[in-house]
Amino acid sequence: MIGQRSAWLLIAPLLLVLLLSFVVPLVLLLPTSFQEYQPGQGMVAGSFTWENYLRIATDGYYREVVLRTLGLGLGVTVLCLLTGYPVAYLIVRGHPRWRLPLTLLVIFPLMLNLVVRSFGWIVLLTNRGVVNNLLLDLGLIERPLKLMFNMTGLLIGLTHIYLPFMVLMLVAALQNVPRDVEAAAATLGSSRTHVFWSVTLPLTAPGIIGGSILVFVLTISALVTPRMLGGPTYQVMATLIYDEYMQLLDWPSGSALSFALAASTLVIIWISSRMTRRWAGMA
């Protein structure tokens, strides 16, 4: 009920803000990633090189960081899926009276400041932290376990951070499973377990895929938790970008790595959206 002119007037301010402070900055970052960098001198004006991108694939250190980032993404996704499904199932299929409190307990960490959540894990996982103290007091270990600045810490911390997203996606998927179909399978002689594996689980596949993609993409882009739990030595792509900009001042390398990271998230999302579209077409 509004004309095209007034529609443009309504949308123009936001579009302008996004063009000027999101699109243009990203576009301007692109040339930087092709410039040479001389330590101590900075960017070499007018230079052009593929080196910054090639290094990501060939340099041993970069490759380790990239593989670590992807491995971390995969690990966190699997952990979120395994721990999140029972929670979602309890929320959707459990006693209705539990639904709201459980949902709020899942949302609460999500709404809580990310830095605070990560700080909580430092208190728990550090050498003289709660977990190690408890285990030492109980006599289960003799020396503190190394729970931070390594894969263990990042897996625990990031799983905790992104689990709520997974649970919420799975809740939505489970709510969409028609109960009649399950009942039909049961009347056809399926056991409970069989109904779950052959009906419920496949029907929640869109939610599983959606949740997994979301968690994976968020994990590989994460800066705060990996930095706080991994420190300046155990790097992932995002923390490396941060250091290249803030410590090393090697902007060309940092921007190349930025585009590599952004490109991988976009590709993953693009592939998944195509996949889900094909799935939707089948249903």
Partner: peptide, 18 residues
């Protein structure tokens, strides 16, 4: 909706240079 998809750290460095 794109700022949700592009990693925040990338938005950060792009804006820093800009």
């Amino acid at each position: 909706m794109a700022p949700l998809i592009v990693p925040s750290v990338v938005i950060g460095v792009a804006m820093l240079q800009y």
